[in-house]
């Protein structure tokens, strides 16, 4: 892997882009017109090569007002997306405000889908505000800092999540800020030593 990291930027040059990547990139091009966002969880490890599928892509967004959400809703529907949870934009907006996730997919399909949530706690907000930016040739995606992503995956705790955490830890090894990693591991009260994540 030719991995170049400069500050908040990670350059993934010459990556062959999958249909899943294109699905995410196309969606983000619409979403980013309306709000800041960060991609978290499974797709982050897939973006860097993990060989597994996923049915959803998890995204945190900054809280927005209803008018802005309505505009996002309208553009998505116009571009042949649909929401899986409800038809009515106000109902969807209320779900977001109630800390629930809403799901968007290409019209008449269910998988893959994008799961969107408002940030709800300090770790979500840190993921958003301190995000990294992955440059795939001319495209760009915001992802959660790896020092948050790895502890968060350990916190979720399924076999699949632990595998994702170990994959990112092995892949980024020397590039990780170990102090920051420890800080978020302590915050989430997780340990990685059983899985070789130690420093």
């Amino acid at each position: 892997m030719e991995l170049e990291i400069e500050g908040k930027y990670i350059f993934l040059r010459n990556k062959v882009v999958s249909k899943l990547d294109l699905f995410v990139i196309d969606f983000i091009k619409i979403l980013e017109k309306y709000t800041d966002y960060v991609i978290v969880s499974g797709y982050v490890s897939i973006l860097f090569g993990r060989s597994r599928g996923t049915e959803d892509i998890d995204i945190f967004i900054e809280k927005m007002d209803f008018q802005t959400f309505k505009q996002l809703n309208d553009e998505l529907r116009q571009k042949k997306y649909w929401f899986l949870n409800a038809e009515n934009p106000l109902e969807l907006y209320e779900m977001l405000n109630d800390k629930l996730a809403i799901r968007v997919a290409i019209q008449d399909t269910v998988i893959p889908n994008i799961e969107i949530k408002f940030t709800k706690n300090m770790i979500d907000r840190d993921s958003l505000q301190k995000h990294m930016e992955v440059k795939i040739d001319r495209e760009s995606l915001n992802i959660s800092p790896l020092e948050i992503q790895i502890p968060f995956k350990l916190y979720l705790g399924s076999d699949k999540d632990i595998e994702d955490a170990v994959y990112l830890y092995e892949l980024f090894g020397e590039h990780l800020n170990k102090e920051k990693l420890k800080q978020y591991m302590d915050l989430l009260k997780v340990q990685g030593s059983n899985y070789g994540i130690e420093f």
Binding site: N14, G49, G53
Partner: peptide
């Protein structure tokens, strides 16, 4: 296996790992 695979991904150019991964993911996508 995850550790073995990550070592392999690190050792080859982006075109190589991403081509294999894309074939796999595209088939799931379809």
């Amino acid at each position: 296996f995850v550790r073995f695979y990550s070592r392999w991904v690190k050792s080859v150019p982006n075109e190589v790992w991403s081509k294999q991964q894309t074939d796999f993911i595209n088939s799931l996508f379809e």
